[in-house]
């Protein structure tokens, strides 16, 4: 039995020490994806807590059809989208206005001065300017090293949509970086 399977079995048996080991192993994966999706550390911590609580309560529902990584990323995605919806409702906006595809601020002019002189932060800045859906695909591909079928399974979208989102994201990202850093121009 591999280590992850043993951890899941122990979590199903309500062994808190197994949950702690699981948390230590996967909290970075969950928190990082939540943070990149939501762009807010407080909301990302909240989502991470909800995801781990779901693992504790529903580990028996994991059917080993996907990897644990894909399973966790998928739960994180759903919890993060719920969080976005809750925040939108909280802000008294019409829920139908949520557009996960649209870029958040790329239409705004990018001020060179907003980025530090050492160019640090430029990737984060341009990533955050992408729409949530595009940002997720870029992050899962380049940071988490996910294949496009894994991303499609995580986000529950067709594989073709993953490629389309990547194509648009790449164009916007390179345009943004090109305006800020000479090497990207």
């Amino acid at each position: 039995m591999d280590e992850d399977k043993a951890l899941i079995e122990a979590i199903i048996a309500r062994q808190e020490s197994a949950l702690e080991s699981f948390y230590r192993k996967y909290s970075g994966l969950v928190y990082g994806f939540a943070l990149r999706t939501l762009k807010n550390p407080v909301d990302a911590s909240e989502v991470m807590n909800e995801v781990m609580l779901e693992v504790w309560n529903k580990a028996s529902s994991f059917a080993y059809k996907s990897s644990i990584k894909t399973w966790l990323l998928s739960i994180t995605h759903h919890k993060a989208v719920d969080m976005v919806r809750r925040n939108v409702r909280h802000d008294h906006a019409d829920e139908s206005e949520i557009d996960l595809e649209s870029s958040d601020s790329l239409s705004c002019s990018l001020e060179q001065g907003e980025i530090s002189s050492e160019n640090s932060g430029h990737i984060k800045y341009c990533m955050d300017a992408l729409g949530m859906a595009q940002r997720q695909v870029v992050y899962l591909t380049f940071f988490e090293g996910c294949s496009y079928p894994e991303i499609a399974a995580t986000l529950e979208i067709p594989e073709g949509t993953v490629k389309t989102r990547m194509m648009h994201a790449k164009k916007l990202l390179l345009a943004c970086l090109g305006r800020l850093i000479p090497k990207w121009d």
């Binding site: 970075g28 990082g32 911590s45 991470m48 932060g121 984060k124 992050y139 940071f143």
Partner: peptide
């Protein structure tokens, strides 16, 4: 660049206590 720049610290012990 993405791998280098998007490395974030995780909540760690505090997150575990909260869980």
């Amino acid at each position: 660049d993405i791998k280098a720049e998007l490395q974030e610290p995780v909540p760690g012990d505090l997150g575990w206590k909260r869980l």
